[in-house]
Simulated scan of single mutants.
Amino acid sequence: MCRVIAISNQKGGVGKTTTTVNLGIGLARQGKKVLLIDADPQGSLTASLGYVEPDEIGTTLATIMMAIINEKEFEITDGILHHKENVDLLPANIELSALEVTMGNVMSRELIMKEYIEAVRTEYDYILIDCMPSLGLMTINALVAADSVLIPVQAAYLPVKGLQQLIHTIAMVKKRLNRQLVFEGILLTMVDFRTNYAKDVAGKVREAYGEKIEIFDTVIPMSVKAAETSAEGVSIFSHCLNGKVAKAYETIAKEVLGNEE
């Protein structure tokens, strides 16, 4: 039974792409078959996995979604790239921006990505969607297609302040478009527990949301090593297997597997 997890936060720079890569590869290291979908026109996930020129890729998420809009046939393997760390990737590039504008006039426009995911989910144990930093139509598509949503939040004041709007949007999608959508949880990222500030922010998140939404026990520590992985096109497991960030993402992957059970 495949689980589809949207990794979403309208605030940029909170660790969405890093989490998508390392959670996905962490699940693959546990023997799961994983597809990562880049749903951001910036192509950050695509670039982070070593495809440094996303705009030169011929078949992307935009290609597939446009085929669905135009009712053209496609193979479920179209556009899939295979990464050496045993995950598959459906890439994205700037074409996704133009598609989002086009979708404004499409009937059932919130369901386009869901149609694709329903076609491929029989091939995978997990599908992770790296959402763009906005609450626009592409993110709504991801939330409609997902079984759950994981929210990475940087342990800082402004990212935490934006949580309320995101949670409201998720609640509206659940009410109107995807009754089965649940919270996978809030994941605190870039946490520097040497500072009282990070401890205070982490405490406020748990106080404000802990009763309603699962908050992962494990947090992702601040680390230069994690930032370096994107330039190398690999996960933290390949870059620094015994480091604290790799250990954290390994634990998060096990927590997600535990949520399944």
Score class of each variant (00 low, 15 high):
Leu241Thr: 13
Pro41Ala: 06
Leu188Pro: 07
Ala67Gly: 14
Leu135Ala: 04
Ala39Gln: 02
Gln164Phe: 00
Val201Pro: 15
Thr77Gly: 14
Val101Cys: 05
Leu177Gly: 01
Leu89Val: 15
Thr169Val: 09
Glu250Pro: 02
Thr218Glu: 09
Ala248Gln: 04
Glu211Gln: 11
Leu27Cys: 09
Leu35Asn: 06
Thr122Gly: 14
Ala145Lys: 01
Met113Leu: 14
Ile170Trp: 01
Ala62Pro: 13
Val191Glu: 01
Gly258Lys: 11
Ala253Met: 05
Val34Thr: 13
Val234Trp: 01
Ser230Val: 05
Val52Leu: 05
His239Cys: 11
Tyr51Glu: 06
Leu181Trp: 04
Ile25Arg: 11
Asn242Arg: 14
Ala202Val: 12
Leu135Lys: 10
Gly24Ala: 07
Leu137Asn: 10
Asn178Tyr: 00
Val191Phe: 00
Lys225Gln: 11
Met103Tyr: 00
Gly104Tyr: 02
Ile220Ser: 04
Val205Pro: 14
Gly210Ile: 03
Thr102Phe: 00
Thr18Gln: 04
Ala39Gly: 13
Ile64Ser: 09
Met1His: 08
Ser97Glu: 12
Glu123Ile: 15
Ser230Met: 04
Ile252Lys: 11
Ile236Ala: 07
Arg121Leu: 04
Thr229Glu: 11
Tyr197His: 06
Asp200Thr: 15
Met190Tyr: 06
Ile80Pro: 14
Leu61Met: 07
Lys16Gly: 15
Ser8Met: 07
Leu81Thr: 10
Glu85Leu: 09
Gln30Lys: 13
Ile94Glu: 05
Met107Tyr: 00
Tyr124Ser: 08
Asn259Cys: 08
Lys254Asp: 00
Lys199Phe: 03
Arg176Ser: 01
